[in-house]
Design a protein around this nucleic acid. Structure first.
Lengths: 311, 311
DNA sequence: CTGAAAGCGCTTACAG
DNA sequence: CTGAAAGCGCTTACAG
């Protein structure tokens, strides 16, 4: 029976047909738990994010879930609540139940991640860890466009509101902004670290103002929006006195006033590809490790960026 | 060994201690799949939402996840993408792996839900289905406050932008708005059905304007914000010409301009309680079915509601 | 092609 | 209190 249902063609087709008919009539469903005992496969993958409610993570969750479901895998999502300890606890609980894990926004350090990757197939998204599979979109194009945009608007001094101390992607973005801004003849400073939240963006206002920057790029849109709201609350008009650019292009960026210029990152595709590679690894294949050229950032210009105030 | 680890005190304590020490040293973890075969328990619960990325569902997901984790259960989240068919497919796949399910925002009809509930422990949140356990907060207090608020501001005609056709909660809110508005001497009309989205809110603008209402209450905040943005785009000032009130008090409501007045619903607590009841049912208990008095809605007044335009 | 059997890693009566 | 055994529902070599 097992052969009939699982290896179509491997047995007499009459027999197979009869078995299938009976199975259908009885509405038979294989018990996934029983199945996983002899095979060692659970057909589940874990997706770890720092915060389920942070729009930054939506597309990662969606892409992973979609991609997994398409292959018959079910996704379990765990949240680290921005805490490495909670993340470890959650992982401890979930690891034995899954065939592999996607780290979409992890608070673990590189060593912990590398150790985890020894245990089970694992791929990190938006981060690079030595010896661990990753999917990281090309961030240069979007940043280049943003820097050029600001330069064309007459800006000379820009501030980067960075993300959490441990966030690889925040550093990555900063490094590229730094080299491109300098290359374009702009001055640039980094302000932070900050939690990747609206509140933290608001709190960054004073330091950003103190820096004298006329344009800010934030590690993510929530930080950018928080900063923008603080600016408005302090009578500093956006983009009149300061231009603001975020990262990720979350939904909220469209509905703020002014709407937010943002560097959009292909999180959905990144997560989709990450899961595909994860499943390939689980199946014992050796997936391509290069970054698809389709994965690149783009600048979405809206109302929060404008000409630098003269003089 | 099994007894030593799982039924503390049931065996000689020396033996138990030795076994525990050895287990710790070997870093032993029971295989959850193997465990579930003889017991029939998977220690997983499913949470079904229509849309993971709709802020409406955040607190439901969080509350459920938190509550489940506290009891050692892992949560698997499935998304129906606003489609009953996809929801059925997802459920089909996940049902055999979980001990119970929370329906946080389901697109299934009552009969389908009742049938599902025959299969496994199930509790619905924010909806009432005959014969099925539910958790529905008291929606009257928040609506009463909203109606009074509008009446005090001089409004006489209000429109309700309703949610999806099948959404029990949308009807529930409408029924209460209807009776309370009429009770307060206001006229009230219902406009819809609409998807529970920003876009749908925007699209509702023409019909709402046609109705002549000077105040609108929307089924959720996204609809309210969409309507507000369409109003502004059409030169209709909020709250100058029309007041807008949403439901749920999502994060985005604070950052729009003007910020959105909203009727806050205790989704986090509702989901927490739902999971507690679900787990009790799984454990063969008969949980309390009454609605805790702590579960009630409240009005959060912000900038989108103001005096009715005179004359 | 197709039976019959062993085994996956646990739990839980059942004896002793 | 504690061995030894059966059984949970599958899959997969192994014979025939």
């Amino acid at each position: 029976v097992s052969r009939a249902l699982n290896k179509p063609g491997r047995i007499n087709s009459d027999t197979e047909a009869k078995i299938r008919a009976a199975a259908k009539e009885l509405n038979y469903r294989a018990n996934p738990m029983a199945r996983s005992l002899p095979t060692g496969r659970t057909h589940m993958v874990a997706v770890i994010v720092a915060d389920i409610t942070n729009p930054m993570n939506f597309d990662a969750i969606r892409g992973a879930e979609f991609s997994a479901a398409r292959s018959g895998y079910t996704t379990v999502i765990a949240e680290s609540q921005e805490s490495g300890r909670l993340e470890a606890t959650a992982l401890e609980r979930i690891m034995p139940s899954v065939d592999g894990v996607i780290l979409a926004s992890s608070r673990l350090n590189d060593d912990e991640i590398a150790a985890l990757a020894e245990t089970k197939p694992l791929v990190v998204v938006n981060r690079r860890v030595d010896g661990v599979a990753d999917v990281v979109p090309h961030v240069e194009p979007g940043i280049a466009a943003a820097i050029e945009h600001l330069k064309n608007l007459g800006h000379e001094h820009v501030a980067f509101i960075e993300g959490p101390a441990g966030a690889w992607m925040s550093n990555h973005r900063w490094n590229i902004i730094l080299s491109q801004a300098v290359g374009a003849g702009l001055t640039v400073v980094k302000i932070g670290p900050n939690e990747p939240t609206f509140e933290a963006g608001r709190n960054s206002f004073d330091l950003v103002r103190a820096s004298g920057a006329t344009a800010v790029i934030a590690y993510n849109d929530l930080l950018a929006i928080g900063f923008m709201k603080a600016a408005q609350a302090n009578g500093v008009s956006v983009p009149g006195l300061v231009s603001v650019i975020g990262f990720d292009d979350i939904f909220a960026s469209e509905i703020t006033t002014p709407s937010l210029t943002s560097i959009k990152s292909p999180l959905l595709d990144s997560a989709t590809i990450a899961v595909e590679r994860l499943l390939a690894t689980i199946d014992g294949k050796n997936p391509d490790q290069s970054v698809p050229s389709s994965l690149y950032t783009t600048l979405v210009v809206r109302e929060s960026s404008g000409p630098a105030r003269k003089g």
